[in-house]
Every structure is written in C-alpha cells, then in structure tokens.
C-alpha cells in the first residue's frame, strides 16, 4: 500500500541534514548512508550518496529520473555470478 500523502516522503532526518550541508558547502562530498529506505528528494539531484548494501557502500549519483525512488533500489544487496555449469557451457 502506498504511503499517506499527508505524511510527506520519508527521509531519515540525519541524512536530510547531511544533504543540506553538502549542498550549501563544497562539492564532491560523498554522503555515506545506511538509510536505504529514504526517498530521493528533488533537492538531492546532483549529489553523490554512498548507499550501504550490507557489505560495502555503493556510490549513487542522483539524477532527476531517480526522484521518488528509494536509495536502496540503487544498491543491490545480492550478487549473482551464475552457476558453474552455465559458465562452462558458455565457454
């Protein structure tokens, strides 16, 4: 079910604070975050975030098409390298 509109989009408060600081301050600041469930706001466009995927931080450069999506969508938590048999068959 979709989130109620009156609540507004969910963004972790500390992430919002860091993003504001990055925008007003110098550029090329990579914001590390564990908050995969935070929504990407229009004000985040152009910033780079490092989103944790459970093992490491995945750099995500926010573009305007990403607005409204969550950070977690851009940092996959699973990596599938295929089955051994599949690889042999391809070679």
């Amino acid at each position: 079910m979709a989130r109620s509109v009156w609540k507004g989009p969910y963004v972790h408060p500390s992430l919002l604070k860091k993003a504001d600081a990055a925008r007003s301050g110098g550029k090329n600041v990579i914001i590390r975050t564990y908050s995969r469930s935070s929504t990407i706001l229009p004000s985040f466009v152009g910033l780079t975030f490092a989103v944790y995927n459970g093992q490491k931080f995945i750099p995500v450069l926010v573009t305007d098409t990403m607005i409204g999506h969550k950070f977690g969508e851009f940092a996959p938590t699973r990596n599938y390298y295929g089955h051994g048999a599949d690889k042999k068959a391809k070679k």
């Binding site: 573009t63 098409t65 990403m66 999506h69 977690g72 969508e73 851009f74 996959p76």
Partner: peptide, 12 residues
C-alpha cells in the same frame, strides 16, 4: 527503458 537506464532494482 527509464527503469533500465536508471540502474534501479526494477530495471535490473
């Protein structure tokens, strides 16, 4: 195509 270009989970 938009989802695929963006590199989000659904696109993958």
């Amino acid at each position: 195509k938009r989802l695929m270009d963006m590199g989000c989970y659904k696109g993958l």
